[in-house]
């Protein structure tokens, strides 16, 4: 029961944080994800889990944006064509898009968390 509650809390956090990632990307662009992740790395209650949570949330934010785009236009056709131009499969392009955001978010969160005051005691 406790484990389920914990999972729900994590899922809720990812959902919220993911939405924040999506919003910040819309507002400032691609570098909004590492910026927000860095902030999260600095302020997250649990700094050990902060990078993982930031990465998953950034990925989720990316997926949200792609889903939103899919509602408004032919994302699959675009993925096919753009991926072919880049010499890859469309799934790889989606993966690269989501992965790029996740990697940046994780790296930013880890780096920021390491700069938190009191880090030496960890």
């Amino acid at each position: 029961m406790k484990r389920r509650k914990l999972l729900l809390v994590v899922a809720f956090k990812i959902l919220l944080l993911g939405t924040a990632f999506a919003l910040v990307t819309i507002l400032v662009g691609w570098w909004g994800a590492p910026a927000l992740a860095a902030v999260w790395g600095l302020i997250a209650p649990n700094k050990k889990r902060a990078p993982l949570l930031a990465a998953v949330a950034a990925g989720w934010g990316c997926v949200l944006l792609l889903l939103w785009t899919a509602v408004l236009g032919p994302v699959l056709e675009l993925a096919d064509r753009a991926a072919s131009v880049m010499g890859m499969r469309s799934a790889s392009l989606v993966g690269m898009t989501v992965g790029f955001s996740m990697v940046l978010a994780w790296a930013a969160a880890v780096t920021a968390a390491a700069m938190r005051p009191g880090n030496k005691s960890d």
Partner: peptide, 9 residues
Amino acid sequence: PARGIWSLA
């Protein structure tokens, strides 16, 4: 994912 090539869709 908001303004890049995906937005062309």
